[in-house]
Design a binder for these strands. Structure first.
Length: 575
DNA sequence: GCCGTTTTCGGCCCGACTGTTTTCAGTCG
């Protein structure tokens, strides 16, 4: 998608310009990136319909950048970007990914030690060369090594959100071929994992040659790893691999089951089959040589006396036992969601007004939206103070009156995303918090604390009678930052006591709580809420990622408060 | 390079934290 590619190019150009110490232009490129991220349309479409003028209406895009976008759409390249890359031959993507490293650090590492990529960086750090540079010391060298080790752990993995939309596009093209009878996702993508190694697609077709030919000649294909009649592997221009497998109609179900995994789930399942005198493989369930099942996935599970297990549960975390006992959860679905309780507006960091956000929520069929803007500690996001919250209340009251007048069954709730300060106190006074419909509190500073300090800090926040929800409770950023150390069991005990709700943040790079913690939370009887943390109307779509994560954590609609109707919603809120 | 109820030229989100230093630069949100 051109949007994503342009976002990447402009962000890199911003960094290149910072390295070159160009003033102000970097910020302009960064603002353009914000504008592109908030776009809910294909930029190619905007350009085709309205040309340069259409591009210039995007916030942050003026004459110059509009021309660059045009150049990219026409030629696939931007000359000034190529020129920057030539002048500064550094792998920015790799180096910027290391936490704590920014443009200035990259510049001095490059000029002093000729460091161009992650490998050079690691070598220099291990050799103790970095600590000798001016403005560096042992600690910064150590932090670089820690950052690299984190990156290595997430190496080669992509966010679900980076891959899923691209694969859905491929699938919709394949589906249109008359030679294609059936298409399915498989692998970790189908299980909805937060990060994905490579994508798997299954196809039933009587004419594989034609299907394969179409697949390998898609415009997004960068490289073909291998190509047979049953399997093709390619790498996309975005850098991830896709395996396409062609299977027969008779073994479609067993292939789906086999290739969806997880490996651990399948091993357990095969052992079960053996105990029943059956053999399970990618072609079907067999008793001796007789095929017992294979066409459908549910048939496979039935053949081994199990209820159908949803792909998101197949991680060998007790789902097979639950299926045997008919005690599988009735997983939440996107349709169960009635509203989104963590949305930002143009009152602070958001791109859209409260009304625009509310209308977008209505378009999704929601009954309510919670505006939860940042509060004053976060100056960068224009965090609101007590007085501004009051003024915002007035605006929300007016908007709600407007809906009531026009008999629109929809309500805007006023919340805030307050900050849990270092000592666990909240950056807004209790009186102002009381005036809100609900209060989210989250950690946005001092993330490097010991496990016990951090636990105490969050517990103190939960004990504040005005705090209803803890946002992104573990602070992880996928592929960038580990979760902070907390005693999660202890936090669950206090959450249960205080009736505090834990957030499942749907932002694709957070997905925090993660699946494992969601399951623990459910088992502890603590309620959750699935929020998008949207900073623009198009981000309301992130809800699907949060729901998938919740499903992976065995959540049912009773566990998630924004599956509840508005009338019931005030009950979980403390004041 | 963008943008305008402070401006078509002259401004450009800012405070906390970290690690290096003895007063500050770089990074992060």
């Amino acid at each position: 998608m051109a949007n994503q590619e342009l976002i990447k190019i402009f962000s890199e150009m911003a960094t290149f310009l910072k390295i070159k110490e160009v003033l102000f232009k970097p910020q302009a490129y960064e603002r353009a990136v914000l504008g592109l991220e908030a776009l809910n349309k294909e930029i190619r479409e905007i350009y085709q319909q309205r040309g340069i003028e259409g591009l210039k209406e995007i916030p942050g895009i003026g004459e110059n950048l509009a021309n660059k976008i045009q150049e990219y759409l026409k030629t696939g390249k931007i000359r000034s970007y190529q020129k920057l890359k030539k002048e500064v031959p550094i792998n920015l993507e790799e180096l910027m990914a290391v936490e704590g490293i920014g443009p200035k650090t990259i510049k001095s590492l490059w000029s002093e030690l000729k460091i161009k990529n992650l490998r050079d960086l690691e070598k220099a750090a291990r050799a103790g060369k970095i600590r000798l540079l001016p403005d560096f010391g042992e600690k910064s060298e150590q932090n670089i090594l820690i950052g690299i080790s984190f990156l290595k752990r997430s190496q080669g993995r992509f966010l679900l959100s980076e891959i899923l939309p691209e694969i859905q596009k491929i699938i919709s093209i394949l589906k249109k071929l008359k030679e294609v009878e059936k298409v399915s996702l498989a692998g970790s993508l189908r299980r909805g994992k937060d990060t994905i190694g490579d994508a798997d697609i299954l196809i039933v077709s009587q004419d594989p040659k034609k299907v394969i030919k179409t697949f390998v000649s898609l415009p997004g294909v960068a490289k073909i790893w291998g190509q047979g009649l049953k399997k093709v592997s390619i790498r996309t221009k975005q850098g991830f691999d896709v395996d396409l497998r062609i299977v027969t109609r008779q073994s479609y179900g067993s292939a789906q089951q086999y290739f969806t995994g997880s490996k651990e789930h399948n091993i357990f399942l095969r052992k079960m089959a053996i105990k029943k005198g059956l053999k399970l493989n990618e072609y079907g369930v067999f008793r001796d040589k007789k095929i017992m099942a294979g066409k459908t996935e549910s048939g496979i599970y039935r053949a081994v006396d199990l209820a159908f297990i949803e792909p998101e549960l197949r991680e060998n975390r007790g789902e097979i036992e639950a299926a045997r006992l008919k005690k599988l959860p009735k997983l939440i679905t996107a349709k169960n969601i009635f509203g989104d309780l963590h949305c930002h507006s143009s009152w602070n960091g958001g791109q859209n007004t409260i009304l625009e956000m509310a209308k977008a929520a209505q378009a999704r069929g929601y009954h309510y939206i919670g505006i939860a803007d940042h509060t004053k500690f976060l100056r960068i996001e224009n965090g609101l103070d007590e007085r501004q919250l009051l003024r915002q209340r007035q605006e929300i009251n007016e908007l709600n009156k407007g809906f009531a007048k026009r008999s629109i069954a929809f309500k805007i709730l006023q919340g805030c995303e307050a900050n849990i300060l270092k000592d666990g106190s909240i950056d807004i006074n209790d009186h102002a918090l009381k005036n809100l419909d609900f209060v989210i509190a989250g950690i946005h500073s001092n993330m490097k604390m010991t496990r016990s300090e951090m636990t105490v800090r969050i517990i103190r926040a939960m004990k504040n009678p005005n705090v209803d929800i803890i946002s992104h409770p573990t602070g992880r950023i996928l592929k960038r930052r580990d979760e902070f150390q907390i005693d999660f069991e202890k936090i669950l005990r206090v959450a249960k006591e205080t009736g505090t709700i834990l957030e499942i943040n749907s932002s694709p790079s957070r997905l925090d709580l993660k699946d494992f913690y969601i399951k623990l939370t459910k088992e502890a009887g603590v309620k959750m809420v699935i929020n998008t943390d949207s900073h623009a109307v198009n981000q309301l779509e992130f809800m699907d990622y949060g729901v998938t994560q919740a499903r992976r954590g065995w959540a049912e609609k009773e566990d998630i408060i924004n599956c509840w109707p508005l009338e019931k919603l005030s009950t979980p809120f403390k004041d």
